[in-house]
Amino acid sequence: MSEAGFFTTRLDEAVGWARKFSIFQYPFVTACCGMEYMATACSHYDVDRFGAGLPRFSPRQADVLFVVGTISHKMAPVLKRIYDQMAEPKWVVAFGVCTCTGGFYDNYATVMGIDTIIPVDVYIPGCPPRPEYVLDGLMKLQVKIQEHGVSGARSAPESRPAELVR
């Protein structure tokens, strides 16, 4: 291993470590899941322990987009716009089964999973997910952030398997 490689990896690790404990999230709260989001964020479950306690209400200052709740087709352009406004590096968490797959609202009004519009890093299913699930998802996200590195491009989100695309 070359000298430079050694330093880069160390630097990567340090930056990753710093990043994963200073998550500035943008909560894009639309629906019922927002209640559980609130419960997670408040003192009882306390996401601050994971360094994610400070929501930023401007997408330009946030690194992680929490999409919380059903996204309807009317809302979809707004979500996309907010995602585009965020600066790199950015991550997206799909909170609740509605954002993961559309849930049981398989009808004319709703988007069947936000990964059809924007890439998603962590899926937290559940309707709504319990706060414990959310914390688990957050830890998974931290692992992902840690692996991200300084220079490396973000790992492209996997596209949906063909058989799931109708």
Partner: peptide
């Protein structure tokens, strides 16, 4: 939204006929 064509609660509107503004139809 204004771009939506049809009236969804009419019985002849299929329940999952989507008219997305962005993104694929699925």
């Amino acid at each position: 939204y204004d771009e939506f064509v049809g009236h969804p609660l009419r019985k002849d509107y299929p329940v999952n006929k989507r008219q997305p503004l962005i993104g694929p139809i699925n």
